[in-house]
Write a protein that binds this DNA or RNA. Structure first.
Length: 260
DNA sequence: TCATTAACCGTCG
DNA sequence: CGACGGTTAATGA
């Protein structure tokens, strides 16, 4: 069910910055700044408190959510009370463009990790934007194709690998999605993640995630500091993850490779 | 609240 | 049997 707690914040402080952020959204790549501003003018701005549900799996989708600031998780609740994280979202990314296009229910539950500012573009307005700017549709499709490729790897990962492999694959994928060059030549996963986040993503318990991460730290493959993980030895992480016999191209997790 | 460690226990190859 | 990983509990930051 749609969460009633989301506050309609149009006209309040977050609105201008949130709308300004839209020019950075990859969905609108290739459009003139003035065209993106016109789209932003048609969007509403909302805020979500930490841990607040933005929408639930199965809710009818009435439009496109775009994360302007903060962090969010897309997740499923599984029977035993655990949570399977499908994706982490950072600004400025759409939450679920697929349901926004086909108008069917959301595929997962979106939960704010931080205080979040969100833009919402209703489906009728989205349809109008797509009519005016076919480029946006092509951008959305690129993003969706990328997600399909990623999801394919995730399911294979969950089915085929043991806990070490799952955590390792999760870290590799996150370093593709959020990676920034670190000082020592490694890669920094530029996204704060609790051990629980890692566990929920990898599909293991928090203790197992800690076991694996502690071991990787002892072997100087990764280093963690205040919920930020640095991958010091990418090759070592790949071998832990047994990437050698993995036929999937996990470089699809890299940002910006949706377009040639 | 988050992170860590250890002991224990069931499953499975 | 032994490796693996989930469960539980205790503890520290």
């Amino acid at each position: 069910m749609a969460h009633p707690g989301l506050t309609f914040a149009a006209g309040r402080a977050p609105a201008p910055e949130a709308k300004a952020a839209l020019v950075l959204c990859p969905l609108f790549a290739g459009l003139a700044a003035s065209e993106v501003e016109a789209i932003a003018a048609e969007a509403s701005v909302h805020t979500a408190r930490p841990q607040e549900t933005i929408y639930d799996e199965g809710d009818p989708c009435r439009g496109l959510w775009i994360l302007a600031s903060g962090r969010a998780r897309l997740q499923h609740s599984i029977a035993d009370g655990r949570t399977q994280v499908v994706a982490f979202r950072a600004p400025v990314a759409p939450l679920e463009p697929g349901p926004a296009l086909d108008g069917r229910g959301y595929m997962s539950t979106a939960v704010a990790v931080d205080e979040c500012a969100l833009l919402f573009l209703s489906r009728p307005r989205l349809v109008e934007v797509l009519r005016r700017h076919p480029r946006v549709l092509s951008n959305i499709i690129d993003g969706l194709c990328l997600e399909i490729r990623q999801r394919d790897i995730l399911t294979a990962n969950a089915a085929l690998k043991d806990a070490r492999g799952r955590v390792g694959c999760t870290l590799l994928q996150l370093s593709h999605q959020f990676g920034a060059p670190a000082g020592d030549g490694g890669v920094r996963i530029n996204y704060r993640l609790t051990r629980q986040d890692i566990a929920d993503r990898a599909g293991v318990t928090i203790e197992t995630a800690i076991r694996v991460l502690s071991d990787l730290q002892r072997r100087h493959v990764v280093r963690t500091d205040a919920q930020v993980i640095d991958v010091q030895d990418l090759g070592g992480l790949r071998s832990v993850t047994e990437c050698g016999d993995c036929q999937f191209d996990c470089s699809v997790f890299a940002p910006g490779n949706a377009r040639r």
